[in-house]
Design a binder for these strands. Structure first.
Lengths: 101, 101
DNA sequence: ATAGAGAGCTCTATAATATAGAGTATACAA
DNA sequence: TTGTATACTCTATATTATAGAGCTCTCTAT
């Protein structure tokens, strides 16, 4: 991954917060709403984008007779997240020898 | 730093690319333009934002009788960058015990 | 003197995008 | 059949990034 081609997924607080939350396991819509503080509409829209770009998968089911939307990170999403962090680490690493030149 | 309060500096390709470039040392306007591929106007605007939020410092001088704008990461900027990466690392780290549950 | 070039800006208009919020569908309980 | 919970779609708004024109300032070449 290159610093000039950061995926959109990492370019807003909300999507990044969703991805971060999903790194630690599946979460349903309500949980993600609580974690992010987003409104229903906005959360739905961003989840859709993350799904479309293959970062997360979305499952819809009825649990206890209530609709339940469960989101999970895909292997691809996890990998991209890792690459993103590693890229930043690389850049940060280069700065350690630089101090404030 | 919290995942729900990511500074704006890290929320666009361009600003992030500028910061990453500056981690490895000072750069002038022309260099940053070449690295990022941004237009003059846009680059100027984003640099200004980064300066206003204290992430970078901007020095203007004449070198070889030509104006030269030199940008450098501030200690604060470097620290924030580090915190950002560390936060992402923390989240990523939590995912390692999770596999695909 | 005067025109031109280089650097880097300001300013404005446009385009893109995130967000809020209203309304809708669906399933079930009361 | 009314109400509740969940999660959506759709639309309008607000925010923001970006492009691009033009301006300033300094020096060089004519």
């Amino acid at each position: 991954m290159e610093i000039n081609a950061i995926p959109e997924a990492f370019q807003t607080k909300l999507r990044l917060a969703v991805l971060s939350a999903l790194l630690t396991g599946k979460k349903n819509f309500r949980e993600l709403k609580a974690i992010t503080g987003a409104t229903d509409g906005n959360l739905g829209a961003q989840l859709k984008k993350l799904e479309e770009t293959g970062y997360i998968s979305i499952e819809k089911a009825f649990v206890n007779n209530k609709p339940q939307t469960t989101c999970a990170m895909t292997a691809y999403g996890r990998e991209q997240f890792k690459e993103y962090v590693e890229m930043l680490e690389r850049h940060l690493g280069q700065s350690d020898n630089v101090s404030d030149k």
